[in-house]
Amino acid sequence: MPDNLTKLLSDAVEAPHRLPCAAAMAAHEKGVLFEYAGASEPSGIDCNSIFWLASMSKAVTATAALQLVERGVLTLDTPAGDWVPELAAPVILEGFGDNGPILRPARQAITLRDLLAHTSGHGYAFGSDALGRYVKQAGLPPRSSGTRASYNLPLLFEPGSDWHYGIGVDWAGAVIEAASGQPLDTYLEEHVLAPLGMADTGFTLDTAQAARRAPMSRRDEDGRLEPMTMLAPTTRPEFVSGGGGLYGTPRDFLCFLRMLAGGGVFEGRRILAPESVQTMQQNQIGNYRGGWITSAQPRITRDFDLLPGMAQKWGLGFAINPERSAEGRSAASVGWAGLANSYYWIDRARASCGLFMTQILPFADPEALALFRRFETTINTRLDGCADS
């Protein structure tokens, strides 16, 4: 398996305009099964290179929230407005009139569960034409500004009445700050990242870390990859994005995945109680469908369905596949992704996990998705073969 997988991955980064770089790792309860990293640039990368994790951050922030639930500081049904003033009187965007956006007060309170499960009514401008129009008409700064005001978006629906992928986990980070009395980055460092040995994961990069960043590219309409520059975040933003602001290495993030695959423990260090891990991986959205994005800004993301043809659910931090996937992922497993085309899974039945990471925009890149799915299929087939032998 390793030789075949290595060739599969190296062929992809060496061929013109397929992938600028790729890192792939997999593990089970006995340790790391496979790792690879490569780039089309001569300098190359390895599994200690720095990648923008983007929405892979969401599960890390959800882990912090569950820690505070364990301690009795929060409950999942805590009204978020009790902790964060901006969430105390949410408004719903009903449309647009001659005088601008039409807003009405929400009838339901937003809970911490809503924020983590994407049932709060929050969205992203890249996934909603209405929110994109609102941002322009309201003159909001872009989220890349790192300002708190850039997250002050109206809701798309009543809290708890639907599922829509959005900035709810960013606001969950603000709840964590208020409830813990610590900035989110400080809390995560002390209670999640440092205990897991994730020394290269954070919201800002020092000079040495910035020099280890994997190259970022954009794929144009003709399928060609062009280098793009994303400035390294060297100073802390006003509003730390718990939903998408983390940078880190594949090796670091695999430690996090192994902790969740291991029921909350990694190398003898308990991060979460088993009951909390189970709650994170249980359906939190009832009959609604999760795990999809409809693009409103094609330069940022294509339409995306993590597991096409399956009515996926959502837990607290990631999508849930209720059935066995085409890649052989066991039923009731979880996984998700990051905007720069990084993807991961945690297979509960096999106590295994894996990740595939590259750095391309727009999201849902066909080459990256195809390679991720072939990688996961190969890993799951190998694990099944070991179990049968």
Rank of each mutant, 00 (worst) to 15 (best):
P2A: 12
D3G: 09
K7F: 04
A12Q: 02
A15R: 15
A15S: 15
C21P: 03
A22W: 05
A22M: 11
A23L: 05
A23C: 06
E29C: 13
K30A: 14
K30Y: 03
K30Q: 14
Y36V: 09
A39F: 10
A39W: 12
S43N: 11
A54F: 11
M56H: 06
K58G: 02
T61F: 07
T63H: 05
A65E: 04
L66K: 01
L74V: 01
L74G: 01
L76W: 04
A80L: 09
G81Q: 08
E86Y: 15
E86P: 13
A89R: 14
I92W: 14
L93Q: 10
D98F: 01
I102H: 04
P105G: 07
A106H: 07
A109L: 15
R113V: 04
D114L: 06
L116P: 09
A117C: 08
H118P: 03
H122M: 15
F126P: 08
F126C: 12
A130H: 13
V135Q: 07
L140T: 08
S145R: 09
P154S: 05
P154K: 03
D170W: 06
W171T: 01
W171D: 08
A174Y: 00
V175T: 06
A178D: 10
S180R: 09
G181P: 09
E189S: 07
V192N: 08
A194Y: 02
A199E: 09
T201F: 08
D206W: 04
Q209E: 13
A211Q: 06
A214I: 11
S217I: 00
E221M: 08
D222G: 12
L225I: 10
E226V: 07
E226K: 14
P227M: 01
T235D: 11
R236M: 15
R236C: 13
E238M: 02
V240L: 09
V240A: 05
G244L: 00
G244S: 06
G245M: 02
Y247C: 14
R251G: 10
D252E: 03
G262I: 06
G263R: 04
R270A: 12
I271Y: 05
L272N: 05
L272Q: 02
L272M: 10
A273D: 10
A273C: 07
Q278N: 05
Q281H: 14
N283R: 03
G286Q: 08
G290P: 11
S295N: 13
R299K: 11
P308M: 10
G309P: 14
G309S: 13
M310D: 12
M310L: 14
M310W: 09
M310H: 08
R324H: 04
S325R: 03
G328T: 10
R329H: 02
A332Q: 14
G335L: 05
A340E: 00
R348H: 12
A349V: 00
R350L: 06
S352F: 00
C353V: 10
M357C: 11
L369F: 05
L371P: 07
T377E: 12
T377A: 15
I379L: 12
I379T: 10
N380L: 14
T381P: 02
L383W: 09
D384R: 15
A387N: 12
